[in-house]
Simulated assay, not measured.
Amino acid sequence: MTDNIRVLAIDDSPLMRRLLSEIFKGALHFELVGAAQDAAAARGLIRETRPDVITLDNKMPDMDGLTFLAEIVESHYIPVVMVSYFTQEGAEEALSALEIGAVDFVGKPIGSTDEGWGPFRQILLERVRAAAGAQRVRSSSAPRTPHPSPQLMHDSETIIAIGSSTGGTEALMEIFRVLPAGLPGIVVVQHMPENLTDFFAQNLNRVSPMEIKEARDGDEVCPGRALIARGNNHMAIRGDGNKYRIETHQGPKVWNCRPAVDVLFDSVASVAREKAIGVILTGMGEDGAIGLTHMNKNGARTIVQNKESCVVFGMPKKAIELGAAEFILPLQDIP
C-alpha cells in the first residue's frame, strides 16, 4: 500500500458520489481512484485501480450491495466499508454485511444540513483508515490452544465487562455462541448506531444459551444474562446491595464514541473492583484501554484479544501498551 489510502466509492446516487469524491480528495493521505454507480462499472475499476478500500452502498440498480459485497470478499479481498442509510428497517442488512465480510459501516445522515454531514465526514475517514489496515479474519474452528486463563468466579457479585468496536460484532457472535447459560452477568459495549443495537442483541440472543438484550436504565445484571449498551447512550453500573444495576445517560462522547467502553469499565472498576473480569476485543482507536487499566489496578482480571485474531488491532494494542492486559489470547480461547 502507498502512503495514501486509495479508495474506490460505489454509490448509485450522483450526489453521493460527488460528496464522497469531495471528502476523499480533500483529505490528507487519501486518494480517490474512482467512483462507480453500479456493480458493472465497479468491476472494471477494481481491476484497473486495485484500491486499498472500497466504500459500498447497499442499494444499486443492477445488483444489491450485499450480493456484490460477497463477490468482492471472495474474489479480491479488498476491505469494504458499507455507506448507506441504515434505518431501523435496514438493521438486518447492516449486520448481514458484517457477517459477509464488510469491515465496518457508516450511516449516511438524514437531511442536507452540515450538522449531520460534518460528523459523517470524520467518521467515514476514521473507518476507511482503519479498514485499510484491517486483517482478514474468519471464524475459527481450530481447537483451543493451551493458555493460562483466569478462573471465573461464580457468585452474585461477579460481573464480566466486554468492549469492542470494528470487527466486534462477529467476535461477540463467536463468543456468545459457546458461553454457557450459568455464567455471571455480562455487560457489553460494542460501538454501533442507536437503531442497530437492539437488533444486534436479538441476533445474539438467538444463538446464545444466555439471555441477551439491549440494556435499559435500571436493568439488573444477573447470572445468565448479557446486556448490550444501547447506541448513542453511555452505559455504566451501580451497586444495589449485593447486585448491580445499569445506568444509562447521554453525556459527552468519549473518544468520539457514545457508548464508550471507558465509561463502562471505569464504573466496573469503581463498583465491582476485584469481583470483575474485563475483556477488550478487536476495534480501532483507544477506547477501553484506560478503563481496563483502572480495572486491573483495582484487582479485576483482564483479557485482551491478540493481534493475530483481531480485524483491527487498535483498542487491544493500546491496552497492552498501558500494561492493562493480564492475559493476551486468541479469540477462540477467550470464552
Rank of each mutant, 00 (worst) to 15 (best):
T2V: 14
T2G: 15
T2S: 15
D3F: 04
N4I: 00
I5Q: 00
I5C: 03
R6W: 01
V7Y: 01
V7P: 11
L8T: 13
A9R: 12
I10N: 06
D11T: 01
P14C: 00
L15F: 14
M16P: 00
I23M: 00
F24P: 02
A27G: 06
A27F: 08
E31V: 01
E31P: 03
Q37N: 14
Q37D: 14
D38L: 00
A40S: 14
A41W: 08
A42T: 02
G44H: 07
L45C: 03
I46V: 07
T49K: 06
P51V: 03
P51T: 02
I54V: 09
T55L: 11
K59T: 15
D62K: 08
D64M: 01
L66T: 07
T67C: 10
T67N: 11
F68N: 04
L69W: 00
A70P: 04
E71T: 06
E74A: 04
P79S: 05
V80T: 02
V81A: 10
V81L: 08
V81K: 10
M82S: 11
V83M: 08
S84F: 02
S84L: 03
Y85W: 07
Y85C: 07
T87L: 02
T87W: 00
Q88A: 14
E89I: 07
G90Y: 08
A91G: 06
E92T: 06
E93N: 13
A94I: 00
A94F: 01
A94S: 05
L95R: 04
A97I: 07
L98E: 06
L98G: 07
E99K: 14
I100W: 04
G101D: 12
G101H: 09
A102H: 13
A102R: 04
V103Q: 08
D104L: 05
V106C: 05
K108N: 09
P109C: 00
I110T: 15
G111Q: 02
S112A: 14
S112D: 15
T113S: 15
D114L: 11
D114V: 06
D114I: 09
E115Y: 04
G116T: 00
W117L: 12
G118C: 10
R121H: 03
Q122T: 15
